[in-house]
């Protein structure tokens, strides 16, 4: 699955541009299956992408248009999908979106993700890993739209990184003060 190392993300959106381009031949963040969010007030940037959560909240499709692929990815059948919006509404982190008659969710590019190649920072990794539970986030993001959910999810992920930053900088300064 796709893993994101927030500490390495610069917010360049090369992953997003590559995703849209290699799937559609066009550039438009709406056409990407992962979405980069910039939290300018806190310096946190990062792509939000399907984490193959334990609960599989999105698999509520009334038409059975969604199925799981061999890499655990969610596959949407465009011929069965009626664009009812149930999966978009269900994803607690806003990683499923509907745009201009199509459902966008990470398909892992069939096992060779283009976003991973586009990232020169190694902030996006394709690797095996534990599937997270989004039960708490699901509760916390009720009533939010996908934009707000991505924002909420990234802000929460960023908290840990910001604690690391805060712990790092003043410690070094106080050491320097000791020297002088």
């Amino acid at each position: 699955m796709i893993r994101v190392d927030l500490s390495r993300c610069t917010g360049c959106r090369r992953c997003e541009a590559a995703c849209a381009f290699f799937h559609t031949g066009r550039i438009n963040p709406e056409l990407a299956r992962l979405k980069v969010v910039h939290l300018y007030e806190t310096g946190i940037d990062g792509p939000v992408v399907c984490q193959q959560c334990e609960e599989r909240f999105c698999m509520v499709c009334p038409e059975n248009a969604l199925s799981l692929g061999s890499n655990g990815e969610v596959i949407c059948s465009p011929t069965v999908c009626t664009l009812c919006g149930a999966c978009e509404k269900a994803c607690p982190i806003g990683a499923v979106t509907q745009f201009q008659g199509f459902v966008y969710i990470c398909d892992l590019c069939g096992g060779d993700p283009k976003c991973v190649k586009a990232c020169t920072e190694k902030a996006i990794l394709f690797e095996e890993g534990e599937r997270p539970s989004f039960e708490n986030i699901h509760k916390a993001t009720r009533g939010m739209n996908p934009q707000e959910r991505r924002h909420f999810y990234l802000s929460r992920l960023g908290q840990k990184l910001r604690e690391e930053w805060a712990a790092r900088s003043p410690a070094e300064e106080s050491q320097d003060l000791d020297k002088t």
Binding site: S7, T10, C12, G43, S169
Partner: peptide, 21 residues
Amino acid sequence: RYKVKNKACYNCNLHCSRYYV
């Protein structure tokens, strides 16, 4: 002393900007 990560403009692969705390 102060830089915590690199930042970048849209679609740049140089990432020459930085965030500091």
